[in-house]
């Protein structure tokens, strides 16, 4: 129950000002919305109660923030009195900034929500949609239960692992229940028919699991008290929804039952701490590797910091990952024709008659001259 212990915001709660039946300042006679998600559950005799609603609009909303994204399974609300004749169930995926309907419950689908009643023989469309179901029935004890399963609006056969549409359908950060029309009042546009009424409920449950996209097996409270996934597979974020900074050798993907889709670390031979993903390289590699190392250190260069930058050459006696794997060419300022040596052998380009790895000696049959332009001349 993702709603357990979470704060519920009710647009109307009785007791302010106090009446004989309800006094918000007296714990024995208060009926706060917190009762809906407290641990007391159905065993608790206390109910949340709205203010008396003498005239339309009779909408009362109950909003519960789940703290992070969850994958819903069901939502239920147990009423203490006769359940409303019309209820809208909404969800938010962006912490309450926008809302989309999950389902409607009404004896007046067209009148209250402009919708046709849900077809009894299944969904018409290929994807999940918010349908209008019959209003919850009053129970013999005078209460009633509103119950919604995410399967109720979803075509059979969709698999959560393979259906992004279904993944989107079940994802919610907040749940809102709009009690639209009280029971018994019929068409509330008829002012003559209206009598003071209040909604009353005892338990709100939001069945679901912490959404971690398959990359965590548990959720934890962070230092700010926020619920977050304990991410693995090289992922991070509240929902493990992205790869960690250095783990971008291939695109982030949701894990499935068959494949973890681990975010892979870039291959930088221990010479870089950052990398970026390049989709074109990823495609060219046959969808195997798209990471490009950034800021190669230790005089290395290349996509994987796998060769030496200009002016340096590979020391064959050291491993590629060694911080001294690349040695400076050290070409002689007079004997060499340039400063860049062969990156593999370290051989500098020598002027005529000059020899040596760094071009620092005259070749056999040559001797040093006084000219820095032609430092070695043939021995007479």
């Amino acid at each position: 129950n993702a709603a357990l212990g979470r704060e519920v915001l009710a647009s109307s709660t009785c007791g302010r000002p106090a009446t004989r039946a309800c006094d918000a300042s007296d714990p024995r006679r208060a009926h706060p919305a917190a009762l809906l998600t407290s641990a007391g559950g159905p065993a608790s005799p206390l109910c949340w109660r709205s203010d008396l609603l003498p005239r339309a609009p009779l909408n009362v909303t109950l909003t519960v923030s789940l703290g992070k994204a969850f994958e819903l399974v069901f939502v239920s609300l147990r009423f203490c009195s006769a359940p409303p004749a019309s209820v809208a169930l909404l969800k938010s995926q962006d912490h309450g900034r926008s809302w989309t309907p999950l389902a409607f419950f009404s004896s007046y689908c067209g009148l209250d929500y402009g919708r046709l009643p849900a077809p009894v023989d299944g969904l018409a469309g290929p994807g999940p949609e918010a349908l209008c179901f019959p209003a919850p029935q009053a129970q013999p004890d005078g209460g009633g239960l509103l119950a919604f399963s995410v399967q109720d609006g979803s075509p059979p056969g969709l698999d959560l692992d393979s259906s992004p549409v279904l993944q989107d359908w079940v994802t919610a950060t907040d749940i809102r229940i709009v009690l639209t029309r009280p029971a018994m009042l019929g068409d509330t546009r008829d002012a003559e028919a209206m009598v003071p009424y209040s909604y009353s409920a005892m338990e709100l449950q939001v069945g679901g699991r912490c959404k971690c996209n398959g990359h965590a097996s548990r959720c934890l409270l962070d230092t700010q008290g926020q619920l977050i996934c304990d991410c693995r597979h090289g992922t991070e974020g509240p929902d493990c929804g992205r790869c960690k900074p250095f783990y971008c050798d291939r695109p982030w993907q949701r894990a499935t039952a068959r494949e973890a889709h681990t975010c892979l670390a870039c291959s930088c031979n221990s010479h870089a701490r950052r990398c970026r993903f390049n989709m074109e390289l990823y495609r060219l590699s046959g969808r195997r590797s798209g990471g490009v190392c950034l800021n190669c250190r230790h005089n290395t260069a290349g996509r994987h910091c796998h060769y030496c930058r200009e002016g340096f050459y590979r020391d064959p006696g050291r491993a590629l990952s060694d911080r001294h794997a690349c040695r400076a060419c050290d070409c002689h300022p007079v004997g060499a024709a340039g400063k860049t040596c062969n990156q593999t052998t370290g051989q500098c380009p020598c002027k005529d008659g000059v020899t040596g790895l760094t071009c620092n000696r005259c070749a056999s049959g040559f001797q040093q001259s006084r000219s820095p332009v032609a430092p070695c001349v043939k021995t007479p």
């Binding site: 002689h332 300022p333 007079v334 004997g335 000059v354 020899t355 040596g356 620092n360 000696r361 005259c362 070749a363 056999s364 040559f366 040093q368 006084r370 000219s371 820095p372 332009v373 430092p375 070695c376």
Partner: peptide
């Protein structure tokens, strides 16, 4: 035969001052 390394002190930089390396 191992030749001696080039002796920088032997070079005459008179006409090549702009090429002279910093030591």
């Amino acid at each position: 035969e191992v030749m001696p390394t080039l002796d920088m002190a032997l070079f005459d930089w008179t006409d090549y001052e702009d090429l002279k390396p910093e030591v």
